[in-house]
């Protein structure tokens, strides 16, 4: 049995990059899907709205762990070949993020006073123009801080991707521990990596909140 060395540290650093990559996939994919779901959630079409509500409820009411299992093993059961770990983890985290981002953004869009819609409507703007020129710019300002806040959640939740065999930061820690069995040292370093990724995001979120709350601009 060896001890924790720079090779191990390097191994963790590379895994941390995978954590960041997985976060990026989940955030971008989840952002796009979540925006569509948020729009569906406030659409005038009752069916569309219903589908969005059910989708959000299911995602928010299911543990991410189960979601990942379902995608990784469930798909194989239906008859497909096994899914690559990156794909399963990416899809799982994307779906998970979309459910939460949709609800955050829906709230921000609806927090823009109804009178703003009305004023835009009375100036003969189309529904699309009202949305893009009047409502979304205001909603965006409110959404920035909670969105970055949720980004921190995604970073931490990528650790669950280890259950489908994806080697990100947490899984890399486990692998090293299996060979040198120094759990305290290893997981302190792992935790340090997570903190190094999340803390700047938290700071950024808080400064955004301060900046954007000062005025409506």
């Amino acid at each position: 049995m060896g001890t924790f060395s720079s090779t191990h540290f390097l191994f963790l650093a590379v895994a941390a990059l995978w954590t960041v990559a997985l976060t990026a996939i989940a955030f971008i994919g989840g952002g796009l899907a979540g925006f569509a779901v948020a729009l569906a959630r406030i659409s005038g079409n009752r069916i569309l709205r219903g589908i969005a509500i059910v989708y959000i409820q299911i995602i928010q009411g299911t543990p991410l762990l189960i979601l990942l299992f379902l995608i990784y093993f469930g798909v194989a059961v239906i008859g497909f070949k096994t899914v690559p770990a990156l794909l399963a983890a990416g899809v799982g985290l994307t779906v998970y993020s979309s459910g939460f981002l949709a609800e955050i953004w829906r709230g921000c869009i609806q927090a823009v006073p109804k009178t703003q819609w009305e004023a835009a409507e009375c100036l003969a703007l189309t529904r699309w123009q009202r949305m893009t020129r009047v409502i979304l710019p205001q909603a965006l300002r409110m959404a920035t801080a909670p969105t970055v806040g949720f980004l921190v959640q995604i970073v931490k939740n990528t650790s669950l991707a280890s259950v489908v065999g994806f080697v990100e930061l947490a899984q890399a820690g486990k692998l090293i521990n299996n060979s040198i069995f120094e759990p305290f040292t290893i997981f302190i370093v792992v935790a340090g990596f997570y903190f190094a990724i999340c803390y700047p995001l938290s700071l950024w979120s808080r400064s955004l909140e301060r900046k954007l709350n000062v005025s409506h601009r």
Partner: peptide, 10 residues
């Protein structure tokens, strides 16, 4: 024109 002005704050 409304009582609450309803200008676009952004």
């Amino acid at each position: 024109v409304f009582q609450s002005y309803n200008l676009f704050p952004h």
